[in-house]
Computed example of a mutant assay.
Amino acid sequence: MATSILEARFRELILPHLDSAFNLACWLTHNRDDAQDVVQEAAMRAYKYFAGFHGDDGRVWLLRIVRNTFYSWCRVNGAASQTEFDETLHSLDPSGDAWPEQARATPEALLMRQDCDRVVHQALAALPLEFREVVVMRELEDLSYKEIAAIVGIPIGTVMSRLGRGRKLLARSLGATLGGNDGA
């Protein structure tokens, strides 16, 4: 009976966050297949150790396991994956609020948006891992500084510092790519 309650709690607290886990793994590995492997291993670890989980925020706990699994995976498979970044995997939803309805309607606008998305994702993918992971967690997963600190295992001040430096590197890269001011 206790096992079914534990399994129900696992389904309720952990399984809804598999998409976030996969998104983080994709940004860390740069490869959809490797990300699937990392998330599968992380989900198995989460299930195995779930009886020891006593919190209510399964998302933070699962993302920390994904991150730790990624670093373990890197040790086994060598350095972080050097596979080419898959822009279609990380493309933004074209129905997002960032673009007005009329701007999404024309083929030219769609091409401009796709090119902008591609440039931003390439710049984000090029960030050093320690900055990329906090930027992804904050900007794409909308996690708080406290949640990121818990996942990465660093103080909140370090999260803020890495996020600030990551944003500056991203802005500099985008400025150089788009031919604008690099912010220096």
Rank of each mutant, 00 (worst) to 15 (best):
M1I: 00
A2K: 09
T3H: 09
E7A: 11
F10C: 02
F10G: 03
F10L: 01
F10P: 01
R11V: 02
E12N: 09
E12L: 14
L13K: 14
I14S: 11
S20C: 03
F22P: 03
L24H: 14
A25Y: 15
A25K: 15
A25W: 11
C26Y: 00
W27L: 10
W27S: 13
L28H: 03
R32E: 14
D34F: 08
A35I: 00
V38C: 07
V39T: 15
Q40G: 13
A42W: 15
A42Q: 10
A42G: 11
A42S: 13
A43I: 06
M44Y: 13
R45L: 03
K48F: 01
F50N: 00
F50A: 02
A51P: 07
G52H: 13
F53K: 15
G55P: 13
D56V: 10
D57C: 04
G58T: 08
R59D: 10
L62A: 09
L62K: 09
L63W: 11
R64Q: 14
I65E: 07
T69R: 04
Y71L: 12
S72R: 13
W73Y: 15
N77I: 05
N77L: 06
N77V: 05
A80Q: 11
Q82H: 10
T83N: 09
T83L: 13
E84H: 06
F85K: 04
F85I: 08
F85W: 12
F85E: 06
T88E: 11
D93F: 03
S95I: 04
S95T: 12
G96Y: 01
D97P: 14
W99G: 01
W99L: 09
P100F: 12
A105R: 12
E108K: 00
E108S: 02
L110P: 01
R113G: 01
D115S: 00
C116R: 01
R118P: 00
V119D: 02
V120P: 00
V120T: 00
Q122F: 12
Q122P: 01
A125H: 15
P128S: 03
L129E: 11
E130W: 01
F131P: 00
F131R: 01
R132I: 09
E133L: 02
E133P: 01
V136T: 04
E139V: 08
L140S: 06
L140C: 06
D142F: 14
D142C: 13
D142L: 14
L143P: 02
Y145L: 12
K146G: 06
I148S: 00
A150R: 05
A150N: 07
P155R: 05
T158Q: 11
T158F: 07
M160Q: 14
M160S: 14
S161D: 07
G164I: 06
G166R: 05
G166Y: 09
R167C: 00
K168T: 04
K168I: 04
L169A: 07
L169Y: 08
L169D: 03
L170M: 13
A171M: 09
A171V: 02
A171D: 07
R172W: 10
T177Q: 13
T177I: 11
N181P: 00
G183W: 02
